[in-house]
Design a protein around this nucleic acid. Structure first.
Lengths: 192, 192
DNA sequence: CCCGAATGAGACATAGATGTCTCATCCAAT
DNA sequence: ATTGGATGAGACATCTATGTCTCATTCGGG
């Protein structure tokens, strides 16, 4: 059986490969399968044993990204407490997923993968529902549409992921920088 | 001479091709030269007459993006008035460039093109200088670093560009949505 | 120490994109 | 109507990434 060491569901290898692949492909979408393998620290042969081909690999990244972000949505309990607190939890939960999520957001070649948009739509609904709830409770301003706030959140998460990857931002500041900007903005408010 | 019609510097053709190419490659970075040509409404032969190859094309997109965004920086007069007003002008000037800029931001395969980072660094400096000026004048809060605000601005511009392309956001709302979120945030402020 | 599974290295054929070419057609200016 | 330049369509050779294979080596468990 060969347990190959530590952990979980033996999917550890796969997921680690998927993460490094996402990180690489986000920056260089035309990277070759050999570059992907090398970036993951494995050989091209092993990469092919894990994922049949490039399509399969990309699809696997998408699947993992969607699944893990949806898990983040669950863990954040978006319905509880004030909307701003829920948002804070969401960003915190999203931090470990930010890298792969950035790939998912930018690589919108999904429009071909049909079954994909379904899962993505469901996520969109949940996030924008959070913003709508915040508007209805009077916490959030109503001149910024939930759809835009959703897109903006994705953009900020991507920016945060890149900043962390490039070392311009510490991972521990990820949540604070995103949430503070998204909620409070850059302007120094007169009173809180 | 064949003026091919309407104006400017006869670079109109090239720039239009570059814009549609950027729009396509942003969404599908693995798009084929034939797809790029078709998206631009020209034949693959003509595309090859305009740009020697794929590298040349990508490089041309990068060059144009940097140049036009730098022109936007110039036009925005970042040193004048309050920093928030300058930011407002910058986003407005950036709107027509948002599409190509999104390509430039995401496709960071620049790390190979050496002469490139130079121009990019210069832009980074100018933008973060604006945020720093706003902090020093007391307009902006100081707990969000200029570097992060710069990255966040890029992310929001990308999100805005995608939202406009997908029809979720009207181009005329581009400036407002970005600036209002970036400056004021989503939280309904108590006063002002 | 031995065995079996997994991996890495490399060869190989294939497919698809690329770059170059030719030729017919179209369009604009004369 | 004529002419010159530009374009589109397509053929073609080439090249590169891909996918499959084999074999030697390594590694971990028994």
């Amino acid at each position: 059986m060969s347990h190959s060491g530590y952990g979980r569901l033996m999917t550890t290898d796969r997921e680690q490969v998927l993460e490094s692949a996402a990180a690489l492909l986000t920056r260089k979408a035309t990277a070759t399968m050999d570059e992907v393998a090398r970036a993951a620290g494995i050989s091209r042969a092993t990469l092919h044993r894990l994922f049949a081909g490039r399509d399969t690999l990309v699809r696997a990244i998408e699947d993992m990204s969607l699944r893990r972000f949806e898990e983040a949505l669950d863990a954040a309990r978006l319905d509880e407490d004030e909307a701003s607190d829920a948002l804070r939890r969401l960003v915190a939960e999203a931090e470990p997923v930010a890298g792969v999520l950035a790939f998912l957001i930018t690589e919108n070649q999904l429009f071909e993968a049909e079954g994909m948009n379904e899962g993505w739509d469901r996520i969109d609904d949940r996030v924008s529902a959070l913003f709508r709830r915040g508007q209805e409770s009077g916490e959030f301003r109503i001149d910024l549409t939930p759809a835009w706030l959703t897109d903006a959140l994705y953009g900020l998460i991507s920016s945060g992921a890149w900043s962390v990857q490039d070392g311009r931002l510490a991972a521990k500041d990820f949540q604070y920088m995103i949430v503070e900007l998204l909620l409070g903005g850059a302007r120094r408010s007169v009173k809180r």
